[in-house]
């Protein structure tokens, strides 16, 4: 039995509540935010209705360009690190016994759902002088005394990659779990060693999945707003931090909204691209 088209009006009844909720609490807020991005900021008050492009014109400043450039480079680096480690990892994970897969999946889910506050706190403890990794190096005689490694760009990159890694594995998992096992077998029969078969057969077969995953992780990293504050220096702040800062502490909602609209456009374009790339592979 294939599903029929709804016939009577009351067939639509189950749709009413979800449609209403999503429209009122997602579409409308989104519309209000877009409207506010064209409003004029009033010093001392908040903003008043208008239709100006001032908030978008501020994008042309060198400061904004620098923050945007940094955010994009940082997100790209995180995507690269996470996917490079996660792809072979997920391949191996999907070949473990079911029991071990479940154990790993529970662990990965627990870490990916952790708040950025928690991840930031945990890593800054690990990078601290009193409880950090440098104490191990001192104990091994590789360093003379423990030191603090945070805040720094390296600390930020580590924290972000740590948070993005389980996300990447979960995005890659379906494709690698469904991967045709005969693909590897055929390569092995023809005499390729497992690592060689992996590099020359599995990676090219899933290159579009890899690309699509990279874009998804890029968007995920672009959204981080607390780790740059907890693990990075002020020069390491990203667009998401800037948006929060303008909205809450500078009370400049119109400018924050304009930046958010810009971020939406960038993210939507990237997500669309990743869907397109992913679909191309499914069609092959």
């Amino acid at each position: 039995m294939t599903a029929a088209r709804p016939q009577r009006l009351r067939d639509y009844a189950p749709l009413v509540f979800p449609a209403l909720m999503l429209t009122v609490f997602f579409v409308v807020p989104f519309g209000i935010m877009v409207a506010i991005s064209f409003f004029r900021r009033v010093q001392g008050a908040f903003y008043e209705p208008d239709f100006v492009f001032d908030n978008y014109a501020r994008f042309l400043s060198a400061f904004f360009g620098q923050v945007l450039g940094f955010s994009l480079v940082l997100a790209a680096l995180v995507a690269l690190v996470a996917v490079t480690i996660a792809f072979p990892f997920t391949f191996l994970l999907a070949r473990l016994s079911r029991r071990w897969q479940v154990v790993w999946l529970v662990a990965l889910l627990s870490i990916v759902s952790l708040s950025e506050v928690i991840v930031g706190f945990a890593w800054s403890t690990l990078f601290s002088r009193t409880a950090g990794v440098t104490n191990i190096l001192v104990a091994l005689g590789l360093m003379s005394e423990p030191m603090s490694l945070s805040p720094s760009f390296g600390a930020l990159l580590t924290g972000l990659s740590y948070h993005a890694f389980p996300y990447t594995v979960l995005v890659l998992y379906p494709a690698l779990a469904r991967l045709d096992p005969t693909l590897m077998e055929a390569a092995r029969t023809l005499g390729a060693s497992p690592p060689r078969a992996f590099v020359t057969v599995v990676v090219p077969a899933l290159r579009n999945t890899i690309l699509a995953t990279m874009i998804m992780v890029f968007v995920f990293a672009l959204g981080s707003y607390l780790l740059p504050q907890l693990l990075g220096r002020p020069s390491n702040w990203t667009l998401s931090v800037l948006i929060t800062d303008q909205a809450i502490y500078q009370s400049n909602l119109p400018f924050a909204a304009a930046m958010a609209v810009f971020l939406v456009l960038v993210s939507l374009a990237l997500v669309g691209l990743s869907l397109l790339v992913g679909r191309k592979e499914a069609a092959q």
């Binding site: 749709l15 979800p18 449609a19 999503l22 429209t23 609490f25 997602f26 579409v27 409308v28 807020p29 989104f30 209000i32 935010m33 506010i36 968007v219 672009l222 959204g223 707003y225 998401s240 948006i243 929060t244 909205a247 909602l253 924050a256 909204a257 958010a260 971020l263 939406v264 993210s267 939507l268 997500v271």
Partner: peptide
Amino acid sequence: FQALGTAPFILPPVITALGFLSFWAT
């Protein structure tokens, strides 16, 4: 509506947060 239900989760959360801030303040 399915797409609408998925969008907030895929976009950077700061966007959804700002949307809600604008909405509840208004």
